[in-house]
């Protein structure tokens, strides 16, 4: 939430300069907050959102049960071969330490499940209102289009965080219930205490949520282009799949550092000793860039378009 508020500040300041007669600060802030709160309620009170959460919560459960069944007779996940580890990242460690289920689940949901959920929510945010005929009523309220857009983006970001936390919490519960839990051996072989491991787990959850900033802005931009909510969702998710495919074609390696999912798995660097921040920094920078480019594109489109529905 605090991120949403800080995100709303700079554009407000910029607009104050253009304004013919600056209004008192307090009412505007109340307006922004009220708008954000109503957007938040719109997003989170939908059945669709709850269904998305249920799907996301189900992934760790499925992974956990599958690992549990496969390792119940003492075998390892990869069948015990010396070259195991072909599955998702961290899956080998899950049966020995339940905390790794969190990392495995985040690594498994980050490529598609999580961004798909974000794509649905972000793609629907403006186009859905336009399709339902409610956008014009929102605009009748004297909030201004820029502020409405910021409130919408803030609620999408809140959904990013919530969706990631749903996966994390579900994985923690399943992991602690099904597997032994103890000191955490990092990727580098160093052992840290469980509480330290939980701390890193929280940091990873925040990083994964931040990894979704880019696709959120992209979805919002696509959403301002059309009046069809389904179309915007499909376009966003389709774009995600296309980009993920391009990111896996070795011949296109020159392009890949500019694709928003390219550094997503960098969250695993938190589990190294020492932590390498290079990849994480690149990921966050890229997400900020996507947010700036597509956020401003969404603003350019939304503030200059005719709303007919």
């Amino acid at each position: 939430m605090s991120r949403a508020e800080t995100a709303a500040q700079p554009p407000d300041a910029a607009e104050a300069e253009q304004a013919p007669a600056p209004a008192p600060r307090a009412p505007r802030l109340v307006w922004s907050l009220g708008l954000f709160r109503s957007e938040l309620v719109t997003v989170f009170r939908r059945w669709r959102t709850l269904a998305l959460f249920a799907v996301l919560a189900g992934v760790p459960l499925l992974v956990g049960i599958a690992v549990r069944i496969e390792t119940r007779d003492g075998g390892s996940v990869g069948g015990g071969g010396p070259n195991g580890g072909d599955g998702p990242a961290f899956i080998e460690q899950v049966s020995n330490n339940g905390l790794f289920l969190t990392f495995a689940s985040l690594a498994a949901t980050l490529p598609f499940f999580l961004p798909m959920a974000i794509g649905v929510v972000a793609g629907d945010s403006v186009a859905g209102e336009a399709a339902g005929g409610t956008l014009r009523y929102l605009l009748v309220a004297p909030a201004g289009r820029t502020r409405l857009l910021l409130a919408k983006y803030a609620s999408v970001l809140a959904f990013c965080l919530a969706a990631t936390l749903v996966v994390t919490v579900s994985a923690l519960i399943v992991g602690f219930a099904l597997f032994p839990v103890g000191d955490v051996t990092l990727l580098s072989g160093t052992t840290i205490s469980l509480s330290d491991g939980m701390l890193r787990c929280l940091l990873i959850a925040v990083l994964v949520a931040a990894s979704l900033i880019g696709i959120g802005a992209l979805g919002l931009f696509i959403s301002t282009l059309t009046d069809s909510g389904i179309g915007a969702m499909a376009a966003t998710v389709g774009l995600l799949i296309t980009v993920q495919i391009i990111d896996n074609i070795p011949q296109l390696h020159a392009l890949q550092p500019y694709l928003f999912p390219h550094y997503w798995l960098s969250f695993a660097d938190i589990l190294r000793d020492p932590v390498t921040w290079t990849g994480i920094g690149k990921n966050l920078g890229l997400q900020a860039l996507y947010a700036a480019v597509f956020g401003s594109a969404a603003w350019a489109r939304f503030t200059s378009r005719d709303v007919t529905a």
Partner: peptide
Amino acid sequence: QYPDFPDADE
């Protein structure tokens, strides 16, 4: 319509 609201777009 809303001269009091500077946030209303130009």
